[in-house]
C-alpha cells in the first residue's frame, strides 16, 4: 500500500518549490525523476544556444530560447529561475542593443547554470531514492 506521507521522506533543495512540484505530480517520484531527466536532456541542448545568441548579438534569438526553456524550470519547481527568465524575456523586447542586456544576461546566465547544477544533483538523489 502506498505510504500517504511518503513525500516527507524526500527533501528537495531549498531552491525548488516542493509544494508546487507536489501540486503537479502528487507524490509520484518515479515520474518526477523522468521529468528531471527529460528537462536536463533538453537544457543540455538548448543552453549553449543562449551564449551563442548573446555573443552573436542576436536579441530575438536570445529571447526565443529563453522563452522556450522558461517553463522547463517551472516543471521542475525552480520558480524563481522561471521568473528570472520571464523578466529577461521582457527586457529583450524593450532594448535595442545587446549591451543594454549585458548585466541582466550575466546574472541570468549564472542563475541558469546554478539551477541546472542543482537539477542534476536532485535528479541523482531522486534516482537513488527511487531505487531504494
Amino acid at each position: 500500500m502506498k505510504d500517504p506521507v511518503l513525500h516527507k521522506k524526500f527533501i528537495f533543495n531549498d531552491n525548488i518549490d516542493s509544494s508546487f512540484l507536489f501540486s503537479l505530480y502528487e507524490d509520484d517520484f518515479q515520474y518526477m525523476e523522468e521529468i528531471f531527466k527529460t528537462t536536463l536532456d533538453q537544457l543540455d541542448q538548448e543552453i549553449p544556444g543562449i551564449s551563442t545568441a548573446f555573443n552573436d548579438k542576436d536579441i530575438t534569438g536570445l529571447q526565443k530560447i529563453v522563452h522556450k526553456i522558461k517553463p522547463a524550470f517551472g516543471f521542475t519547481g525552480f520558480l524563481s529561475t522561471e521568473l528570472a527568465c520571464k523578466e529577461f524575456e521582457d527586457a529583450c523586447i524593450e532594448v535595442s542593443r545587446i549591451d543594454e542586456l549585458a548585466p541582466l544576461f550575466h546574472s541570468l546566465w549564472t542563475l541558469l547554470l546554478k539551477s541546472i547544477d542543482i537539477m542534476h544533483q536532485q535528479y541523482d538523489l531522486l534516482k537513488e531514492f527511487n531505487n531504494q
Partner: peptide, 12 residues
C-alpha cells in the same frame, strides 16, 4: 509543442 517535458506532461 517544442518543449519535450511539456509535451510529455500533456500526454500523461
Amino acid at each position: 509543442e517544442d518543449l519535450q517535458v511539456a509535451a510529455d506532461y500533456l500526454h500523461r
